[in-house]
Design a protein around this nucleic acid. Structure first.
Length: 837
RNA sequence: GCCGGGAUGGUGGAAUUGGUAGACGCAGCGGACUCAAAAUCCGCCGGGUUCACGCCCUUGCGAGUUCAAGUCUCGCUCCCGGUACCA
């Protein structure tokens, strides 16, 4: 056995070499064991892993290793989200091809991950930029096209001038590009859209299935983003018809206030505006207003400090129930792309309408007011939006307004002037990107046939690699004749290939399923493998993907299920989600510009992978942010050296393998009983913390306590053979409990204990309740709820005995003094509280 | 505004079902070992008060429920995240 001091580098190299050679973590779906699929969000191959990756993957690796020891058949794969803009930017900057840059980064980062000893099933590795991967995505695109779930549309799009591409709504954060923070502009373009809105209801409703498994806030964020509103569409007639258009629809969540409509407001972009102003003497003023609002910066226009402005169009609508004339206004606060782009104005029931009416002197009519209170339109200072009773509403007077929503809608429906409807905030997903380094969209444009999907047998449409990246950042594809020039799959005439590529979020929307059968060259998935592995049991990643990636993956899961690729019973991709916090430094995000980056590679060189893993897990519970601490990692390193020393310095105490299984018979001394008890309690706690609660920090703390106890008791304990047996058993337990966290150190010492089979193949230890029982326990003594002492008493003492012992306690007596004891509360095993006054 | 989360020593954080608040670590202080230092080992470590035993206070603030509240209820403050003229 070795007496050397702890040398992580040598140990880790040895075990990693073995894992790479023997691939002990590869798995198959042909197994009798229960399955467990644990997945961490795959990285973009940016060049080097950072501490956030280390934290993310260390958490996943503990779960994977722990579940394996618990007897599960564990799938724990890794791959690369390899398409994307940084590769093109690097190409411009360094003159290397995006593919070369990407593959080099993958090789480098794979080595870094292997240097951390993660137990991945490497044979399943995928890289989304390989044709063997994206060809299936192109197949899905063709299916989506067949089913009408992808379509082309010209509309104003989010355009990032710095990335030279459009962005999905989800990729615009506060008006800025999610990647480069440039101000996003609006640009009219024809683009490909995935019809995610067709799944709006299901995406919303199925959030209920995720409760308990997903963090509340992620569910709430998705709910907000989908933004479903129940209400009614109301059709107002137009006083004069324009080009055969004689009505104007609005969406409202408050049909109960329909009788309070005194005006209507349209978005300046509303298509009817030019018609409405025809013949109006102030038409030019209206046009000027429209132009001014249109050219306002989008961010400024959305700011909440923007003053409400409007202008009368000269035209009138007709109220569907009362036949009143309703003036039509334009308003800068009305959004063209939500609802119908027009709203009914009810100043008494909507604060915006109230302000608008006050500003422009429009009438206010109260239609809902609190019970037994009369609201006066002239003296009101704000709209009344709370529940109430309907008034001034014809036949609906006196009705509760909630009921009124349904009643008014029903009446409108019966007259063909409206219907119940829902609106979503969610928009269809623009997946076109004007970029080179992405998956080609498999369609061609033919002069005679129009837009034609590529034939399935012609897939993949391979992204050409023999291109020259342009210095201005624009895609080279449109000027790559070998790619653009093609033949029409339908008529065989020359045609032009689509040069936009797909949003890289498409690749990451289904990768978790491809891992189940990653090398399949004839189909995207093997149904048997999918049926076995899906859904992912535990998904782990950053909360920054709470909307983007997680929403898209949920959408794809439902689509691929409906297409028959996924099993019919798989509704959601990720049963449980853990969103880990960020690794900060000096209270802020690590960034090159701030110069506060802690490089994992350096840390591994200095302390070893086990220490880095241990510290990342010990510093804080996984979902919380934590601040990197240089002295903190010293502490983690110290602990592992302490375990190593405890082992190597105890050579004379550690028994040969066969003799080290301790039993209750061996606890012939108080130290032995205490250590054995501590050992079993630690097994219990570590198992619960790692497996059920994902509180790795407290699991580690418990093992530290066990190690501390071993240090303190080993001299006295190991005087006897039986004591040595208890000590040896505890040592083996320490190594086992730590093995998911610090696998190299654990395996190494396990081997030195004389074991042939690796520790990773051992079952997770059982704890014996009998071993945790104590003869005597300490209970708290309280008088009137305040702690006044403690009492050592037989663990099985009954209530009467505890009460008597408590009352006999000197400190308790002193505090009772002259008071009369009114009541004694006895909690067996815990405390005695004496109530006296 | 709405939705979600949070606030505990010098510090990161424990306290799982309401039952001895501060586990474990970091930093600090004291001691042992050493020519010395590092490393290591042992001890102390919320605040006030006391020679001491103790006593009082303490989980953002204020009420309440309870024999007992960091934990439950109500009302606030502040911080973080999401979302928003969404009709």
């Amino acid at each position: 056995m070795s007496q050397e001091r702890y040398n992580p580098q040598a140990i880790e190299e040895k075990w990693q070499a073995r894992w790479q050679k023997e691939k002990p973590f590869a798995c198959t779906h042909q197994s009798n064991k229960p399955k467990y699929y644990v997945l961490e969000m795959f990285p973009y191959p940016s060049g080097n892993i950072h501490m956030g990756h280390v934290r993310n993957y260390s958490i996943g690796d503990v779960v994977a290793r722990f579940k394996r020891m618990q007897g599960f058949n564990v799938l724990h794969p890794m791959g690369w989200d390899a398409f994307g803009l940084p590769a093109e930017n690097a190409a411009i900057k360094h003159g290397v091809h995006p593919a070369q840059w990407t593959y080099a980064n993958i090789d480098n980062m794979r080595a870094q991950l292997q240097r951390l000893g993660y137990s991945y099933d490497w044979p399943r590795e995928v890289a989304t930029c390989r044709p063997e991967y994206y060809r299936w995505e192109q197949l899905f695109f063709l299916r989506l096209l067949e089913k009408g779930l992808v379509y082309r549309r010209k509309a104003p799009q989010n355009w990032c001038p710095s990335c030279h591409t459009v962005l999905a709504n989800e990729q615009v954060i506060d008006g800025l590009c999610w990647r480069c923070d440039s101000r996003v502009e609006q640009k009219d373009l024809t683009q490909w859209f995935l019809k995610i809105t067709a799944y709006g209801d299901e995406l919303l409703d199925d959030l209920a299935r995720l409760e308990g498994g997903w963090p509340e806030r992620v569910i709430a964020m998705q709910r907000n983003w989908i933004g479903k509103s129940l209400g009614a569409e109301v059709v107002f007639g137009l006083e004069k018809s324009f080009d055969g258009v004689d009505s104007l629809s609005v969406f409202t969540t408050r049909p109960d206030t329909l009788f309070g409509v005194t005006f209507m407001t349209l978005a300046p972009e509303h298509p009817l505006v030019e018609h409405l102003v025809q013949g109006y003497e102030k038409a030019d003023e209206v046009r000027a207003f429209v132009e001014r609002i249109r050219h306002m910066d989008r961010l400024d226009r959305q700011s909440d400090t923007l003053e409400k402005e409007g202008i009368f169009t000269g035209a009138y609508a007709v109220h569907p129930l009362t036949g009143e004339r309703i003036p039509l206004w334009l308003g800068n606060f009305v959004l063209a792309d939500y609802g119908t782009g027009a709203v009914m104005g009810v100043p008494s029931g909507d604060q915006r309408d109230f302000e608008f009416a006050r500003k422009y002197g429009l009438p206010i009519r109260v239609v809902v007011q609190p019970q037994a209170v009369s609201l006066d339109p002239d003296s009101m200072t704000e709209a009344y939006t709370a529940p109430g009773i309907m008034v001034n509403s014809g036949q609906f007077d006196g009705m509760d307004n909630e009921e009124g929503k349904k009643a008014v809608t029903a009446l409108l429906q019966s007259q063909g002037k409206g219907k119940a409807t829902t609106q979503f905030r969610l928009r269809d997903w623009n997946i076109s990107r004007q970029r080179y380094w992405g998956a080609p969209i498999p369609v061609v444009y033919c002069e005679s046939c129009g837009v034609v999907p590529e034939k399935e047998e012609n897939l993949p449409v391979t992204l050409p690699l023999d291109i020259k990246v342009r210095d201005d950042g624009r895609s080279p594809l449109p000027e790559t004749p070998s790619f653009v020039q093609c033949t029409c799959p339908r008529c065989g005439k020359p045609a032009r290939r689509e040069t936009d590529t797909m949003d890289t979020f498409v690749e990451s929307s289904w990768y978790f399923a491809r891992y189940t059968d990653a090398r399949n060259a004839s189909a995207p998935f093997d149904p048997a493998a999918l049926a076995y592995w899906l859904p992912v049991d535990q998904y782990i990643g950053g909360v920054e993907h709470a909307i983007l990636h997680l929403l898209y993956s949920r959408f794809f899961t439902k689509v691929l299920r409906d297409f028959g690729y996924f099993p019919a019973n798989v509704a959601e991709p990720f049963t449980n989600l853990l969103t880990q916090g960020m690794v900060l430094k000096d209270g802020g995000k690590m960034s090159k510009s701030k110069g506060n980056v802690v490089d994992p590679t350096e840390m591994i060189q200095k302390y070893g992978a086990d220490t880095v893993r241990l510290f990342c897990l010990f510093a804080a519970p996984p979902e919380r942010d934590f601040d990197w601490s240089d002295s903190g990692i010293e502490g983690a390193s110290r602990f592992l050296a302490r375990v190593w020393r405890l082992f190597t310095e105890s050579q004379g105490y550690l028994l040969p393998l066969a003799a080290c299984a301790a039993t209750a018979d061996d606890t012939d001394s108080p130290e032995a009983r205490e250590l054995r008890r501590k050992e079993h309690l630690t097994v219990k706690k570590a198992g619960e913390d790692m497996g059920d609660r994902f509180q790795f920090n407290t699991a580690i703390a418990a093992v530290m306590e066990l190690v501390n106890t071993m240090y303190l008791t080993r001299e006295r304990l190991c005087q006897s053979e039986r004591g040595k047996r208890v000590f040896s058993s505890a040592m083996a337990t320490v190594l086992t409990l730590l093995s998911p966290i610090t696998p190299h150190l654990s395996e190494e010492l396990w081997t030195q204990l004389g074991h042939e089979a690796p520790l990773s193949d051992q079952p997770w230890p059982q704890w014996d309740a009998a071993a945790t029982i104590q003869d005597s326990i300490t209970v708290a003594l309280q008088v009137n709820g305040k702690l006044r002492g403690t009492l050592s008493i037989a663990a099985n003492a009954d209530k009467a005995t505890m009460e008597a012992a408590a009352l006999a306690d000197a400190s308790v007596q002193r505090h009772i003094g002259q008071l009369t004891v009114r009541k004694v509360v006895v909690v067996p095993g815990k405390l005695v509280n004496i109530v006296a006054n």
